[in-house]
């Protein structure tokens, strides 16, 4: 009898599964384990979930207190809500700014498109942190923008730009804009302009043609771009920390506080777990939308 080897198809499928279980599922389970343990003073600073008693009995001690606190204390709920709101607004702002950009690139003459696309990704050549720091130089009280406005006589004393919601959104939109433009470009470049001409022939004005033809056809790109901005923006820590006001208690900042200031690893892990679940739902929705779009 011949040993049956797994087919090539199985192997190809097994690889991503292996990857995901190694680098996604396993870390998630570790985080979940910490989330269900009790904080303690020691190395590491939490009590083990699995314990052998003297009689050789394996006992499991689960602490659901952290998750209960998360849902009963409005402090965490507010932080989640604020993070979701900031991420959603950032996503919309990126869409409003990114859509015309992507559209223009897609409609540009072929030989210029690559150059324009390269300009979109050009900022990635510099460190992310450095680019956020550069915004501090622009927005500070004695920064470039205030100095220009002062010199032009528009304002008589510096206006506060740094450490405000404006700075927060400027930072997020600036950093994540390429993630919106690229998927939009990908969909818009496949779009056949003949459809618009046909609409015009049938008497549709440009605006109406855009709303009834271009926009619906570019929906997958819009959703992909929005998700690519929204998902990392929810857990964003560096930008709110460096540019946002002290009032911007986003979930990333709260997580940091639990982990570092309170040294409560289980609580921080519980926060991270819930954050992950919050993100899995929109991703699943996105997959669903994509599946529908491709049908």
């Amino acid at each position: 009898m011949r040993l049956r080897l797994p087919s090539g198809r199985t192997l190809v499928l097994a690889l991503p599964f292996l990857w995901l279980s190694l680098f996604f599922l396993a870390p998630f389970l570790i985080v979940a384990k910490i989330a269900l343990s009790e904080a303690a003073l020691g190395i590491p600073p939490y009590a083990p979930v699995l314990r052998w008693t003297d009689e050789g009995v394996l006992t499991v001690v689960l602490n659901l207190g952290n998750l209960a606190t998360l849902f009963s204390d409005p402090f965490y709920f507010d932080a989640y809500l604020r993070s979701l709101r900031v991420a959603a607004i950032s996503g919309l702002l990126c869409l409003v700014i990114g859509y015309p950009m992507a559209y223009a690139i897609a409609r540009a003459p072929e030989h210029r498109r690559n150059l324009l696309l390269m300009l979109v990704v050009l900022p990635f050549w510099t460190s992310f942190l450095l680019r956020v720091m550069a915004w501090i130089g622009l927005l500070a009280d004695n920064g470039v923008i205030n100095n220009l406005l002062l010199a032009a006589g528009v304002i008589s004393q510096p206006i506060q730009l740094l450490y405000t919601d404006f700075a927060l959104y400027a930072g997020i939109v600036y950093c994540y804009l390429p993630f919106m433009v690229l998927p939009l470009y990908a969909t818009l470049s496949k779009f056949d302009p003949v459809l618009i001409e046909a609409a015009a022939d049938l008497g549709a004005r440009p605006w109406r043609a855009f709303l009834t033809i271009t926009l619906p056809l570019s929906l997958p790109g819009i959703i992909a771009g929005f998700m690519l901005v929204f998902i990392p923006a929810v857990g964003e820590f560096v930008i709110p920390e460096l540019l946002g006001g002290p009032g911007a208690q986003l979930i990333g900042r709260v997580l940091w506080m639990e982990f570092f200031t309170n040294r409560d690893w289980p609580m921080a892990a519980a926060l991270a777990m819930v954050l992950l679940l919050l993100l899995v739902i929109p991703i699943a929705w996105f997959q669903h939308m994509q599946g529908r779009a491709s049908r």
Binding site: F75, P246, G247, Q249, V254, M257, N262, R263, D264
Partner: peptide, 15 residues
């Protein structure tokens, strides 16, 4: 410590 961090967060936020 947690009560103090909360206090501090509210203080920084000014509300």
């Amino acid at each position: 410590e947690r009560a103090r961090s909360r206090l501090w967060a509210r203080f920084k936020a000014g509300r």
